[in-house]
Write a protein that binds this DNA or RNA. Sequence first.
DNA 1: CCGATATGCAACTAAACAGTTGCATGTCGC
DNA 2: GCGACATGCAACTGTTTAGTTGCATATCGG
Lengths: 113, 113
Amino acid sequence: MSPRSGAGLARAGPLFSALGDETRLGVVARLSAGGPQSIARLTAGSGVTRQSVTRHLSVLAGAGLVRGARRGRESIWELDPKRLDDASLWLEQISKRWDEALGRLKSFVEGDG
Amino acid sequence: MSPRSGAGLARAGPLFSALGDETRLGVVARLSAGGPQSIARLTAGSGVTRQSVTRHLSVLAGAGLVRGARRGRESIWELDPKRLDDASLWLEQISKRWDEALGRLKSFVEGDG
DNA sequence: CCGATATGCAACTAAACAGTTGCATGTCGC
DNA sequence: GCGACATGCAACTGTTTAGTTGCATATCGG
């Protein structure tokens, strides 16, 4: 149950990597605020071209963070909050382990070992 | 209180970007499991050179995730779990906003106005 | 059918970055 | 002082990637 293999968090790297881009964070924020929407609507106000947004959506989809489907001539994209929970869980695990490590260190220094 | 400006989360980008690298995630995991330790110890078993680890520590420090201090001839590094909490909080905000957006969409579709 | 809208695919450029090697500096133990 | 250990600094390379432009395809409304 290490943080890198437990609870469906085996691929935390690609997950954080997908979130580690300002433009992609903007897309995620826009999706979270406006609900499911098309690429054209996501592009408006993003400051980059439509193709750039498309590519970022593809990266986010690769990390399992978003999901899109063609509807007529539009492509509607939506968030997949499950992955966000996964990321949050990974962070909590690391934080917890750190506290435990500090506890062990304290015991050792105090002569418990 | 948008996710990009609220609660000390103004710079979520660099934060996730710092976490979005397998080698850095390894360093973070190793720190969290073993407590404060030197660069040499972090390097052992990392699969990369000491300079690479040093650089990654610098990046993590830039994001406020780790903190180091020279002690004798060694440089001891430790995790700063506060930033992990910040990241977790950001994720929760996004997730919450998404649920709200879906709620509004549902009301709209059902003819609430 | 036709114009407008919305997207997909492909090639190109420029910048960022991970990782390396080589050398210099400073500290510990004897 | 001397050898061993630990780190810092700098230059170089190869790869990845964000962003762009140009063109092709498919859908909607009349």
